[in-house]
C-alpha cells in the first residue's frame, strides 16, 4: 500500500474544557480526492485548521510524505505545499484575478511589482486547470460569479506548486451548473497528482468525485473507507450515529 501524502495520527485538540478532536487518524493520498464528512460540530474545520497551522495541536503527529513535520503556522503549511481554500474564499473584491492570486506573495523586480510575470503565471495556472470562463484575468473579482470566484480561490491555491489542497465546502453556495464546474475542477486537481481533501455536506458531491470518504463523528474518526465500498445510506449513518453495521466506532 502506498504512503499517504498527508497523514494525521492520534490527533487531540481541546479548546479550554471542550475536547473537539479525540485521537483522530486521517490520511489523504496523492492523485485522489478524499472527502471529509461529518455533521456540524463534528470537528471537520478544526482538523483542517490543525493541519493548516492555524490551531496548535495538543497531541498527535502530522506526517507529510511519510515524514514527521511540525506545522505551527500557516507559513509552515504553505512551505510544505498544503493550501486551504476556506469557505468564505478570502478574496478581495476590489482587486483583479491576478492581484488576488498573488496576494501577499507578489512577484517583484527590485522595488516594484512584476505585473507581467504574475500575469503570465496566473494565465498558465488557469489554462492548466482548463478554466476558460473568465473574460479577462484583469477583471475585478467583484464582477465574477460564485463559481468563478471559487475557481479563482482554487487556482490561487494551486499556483504555489502545492501538493495538498483542502477545500472547505466549495459548492455550498453554488447553483447546479456551477457546482458541476467546480467538481470537475476538483477531479482535475486530483488527476494532476495532487492530494485533494474535500469537506462537504452534500452526499451527491461526495459520491460524484471522491475516491475515499473519511467520516468524523463527535470529534472521532468513525471510518475511512473507499467510496466504491459504501452506499449513500451507510455514509449518512456514519455521519449521524458514528457507525453503520460493521463500520464505525465500536459501541
Amino acid at each position: 500500500m502506498t504512503t499517504p501524502l498527508l497523514e494525521v495520527r492520534g490527533l487531540d485538540k481541546s479548546f479550554g474544557p471542550v475536547q473537539v478532536l479525540h485521537d483522530v487518524a486521517f490520511s489523504a493520498y496523492a492523485g485522489e480526492v478524499t472527502a471529509l464528512v461529518g455533521d456540524n460540530g463534528a470537528g471537520k474545520s478544526t482538523l483542517v485548521k490543525c493541519v493548516g497551522g492555524i490551531h496548535p495541536v495538543d497531541a498527535g503527529r502530522i506526517l507529510f510524505d511519510g515524514d514527521d513535520v511540525q506545522v505551527s503556522t500557516p507559513r509552515d503549511a504553505g512551505a510544505l505545499g498544503i493550501e486551504i481554500v476556506y469557505q468564505d474564499l478570502a478574496l478581495c473584491d476590489n482587486l483583479d484575478i491576478v492581484q488576488n492570486m498573488f496576494l501577499g506573495r507578489e512577484r517583484r523586480s527590485g522595488l516594484v511589482l512584476d505585473e507581467a510575470t504574475m500575469e503570465e503565471m496566473a494565465e498558465r495556472t488557469l489554462s492548466g486547470l482548463s478554466v476558460r470562463s473568465v473574460k479577462s484575468i484583469r477583471q475585478q473579482v467583484a464582477s465574477l460569479s460564485g463559481g468563478q470566484r471559487q475557481t479563482v480561490a482554487i487556482a490561487k491555491a494551486v499556483l504555489w506548486n502545492s501538493r495538498v489542497v483542502i477545500l472547505d465546502e466549495p459548492t455550498a453556495a453554488l447553483g447546479v451548473a456551477q457546482t458541476a464546474q467546480v467538481l470537475e475542477l476538483v477531479r482535475r486537481l486530483a488527476d494532476q497528482g495532487l492530494a485533494v481533501v474535500l469537506i462537504s455536506h452534500n452526499m451527491n458531491d461526495v459520491f460524484a468525485v471522491s475516491d475515499r470518504i473519511a467520516a468524523l463523528y463527535l470529534g472521532r474518526m468513525a471510518a475511512q473507507v473507499r467510496t466504491a465500498d459504501v452506499t449513500h445510506a451507510q455514509v449518512v449513518e456514519l455521519i449521524t450515529s458514528g457507525r453503520s453495521g460493521e463500520l464505525g466506532i465500536a459501541p
Partner: peptide, 13 residues
Amino acid sequence: AVGGNAEAARRAG
C-alpha cells in the same frame, strides 16, 4: 487589499 477585505489580507500573510 486591506481596504477591500482585511481578513483575506491577513490570511494571505
